Amino acid sequence: MLPSVVAHRGASAHAAEHTLAAYDLALAQGADALECDVRLTRDGHLVCVHDRRIDRTTNGRGVVSALSLAELAMLDYGGEVGVLTLDALLGLTADHGTRLFVETKHPVRYGGLVEAKLVALLARHGMAAPADKDTSPIVVMSFSTLAVRRVRAAAPGLPTVLLLSQLWPTLRDGSLPPWADHTGPGIGLLRRDPDYVARAADHGHATYCWTVDDPADVELCAGIGVRWLATNAPAATRAVLAR
């Protein structure tokens, strides 16, 4: 089975990341699912911003957690005015029936409040307690084991991904902590150790791989059984998979 194509911050190779334009383009390009990063503003709103600071992606400066939603809403995000809130992105995905992979960023000023706010927001959208994990419209991810554990405790029905930039010695056999459903290695890890996907599958864990744009990497992921492939260019990635 070919991997599902997940639009990493939207179609971010062609539109400003974490903007409605990027997500609309990703859907137009045939992405199977979308991905976003979330951080908390000073006044407690979840916004879709990757970096700790806004300097790279806006015409402003400062730390996300030190700014209010109103302050972030006044900035230009690569041609689109106003920060994208997770609330708005959840509305978009619900309208299109599209799965959303949500990464909570750590370390952050507000610690576990990020996961608490996330679960509360998902509950308001009716997404915190899916009928089953395979059809859940939301998957929650983090590099932080504590973050993934907090999500499991607060919303046991939500599927989770433990993101990995390297394999810890205790995870080399493909196992994961009990609160993580799926594994999330970076593409560099799979280039070095492609058999990891099979070892994880032997333990019942599917693989989400980030961030895969090079055609050779797309083909590698398809060949070793990656289930979800995060990419900045959904259309180009789908074209490689269709060969």
Rank of each mutant, 00 (worst) to 15 (best):
L2I: 11
L2V: 05
P3W: 06
H8D: 08
H18P: 07
T19A: 10
A21V: 11
A22T: 06
L25W: 04
A31Q: 05
D32A: 12
A33K: 08
A33W: 04
C36K: 01
D37P: 10
V38M: 05
V38H: 02
R39T: 08
L40F: 01
G44Q: 04
V47S: 01
H50Y: 01
R53V: 12
I54R: 00
V64D: 08
S65L: 07
S65D: 14
L75P: 09
D76V: 07
D76W: 02
Y77I: 07
V83P: 03
L84R: 02
D87P: 05
L90I: 00
G91T: 07
G91W: 04
G91A: 12
L92P: 06
A94S: 15
A94F: 07
D95R: 15
E103N: 05
R109N: 11
G111M: 05
L113P: 03
E115I: 13
A120G: 14
A120R: 14
R124M: 12
H125E: 12
G126H: 11
A131Q: 14
D132M: 10
I138G: 06
S144Q: 08
V151N: 04
L158I: 11
V161C: 02
L162W: 11
S165E: 15
S165Q: 15
S165V: 14
Q166V: 14
L167M: 12
P169W: 09
T170W: 15
R172V: 14
D181G: 08
H182T: 10
T183Y: 00
I187V: 14
R191A: 00
D195W: 06
D195F: 02
V197C: 00
A200C: 08
A206Y: 09
A206D: 13
T207N: 03
Y208P: 02
C209M: 06
D213Q: 05
D213P: 01
D214G: 09
P215N: 09
D217V: 05
V218C: 03
E219P: 04
L220H: 00
G225C: 04
G225Y: 01
G225A: 07
W228L: 03
A230L: 15
A233F: 06
P234F: 04
P234E: 04
A235I: 11
A236T: 10
A236G: 12
A239E: 14
A239M: 09
L241F: 08
R243A: 15
R243H: 13
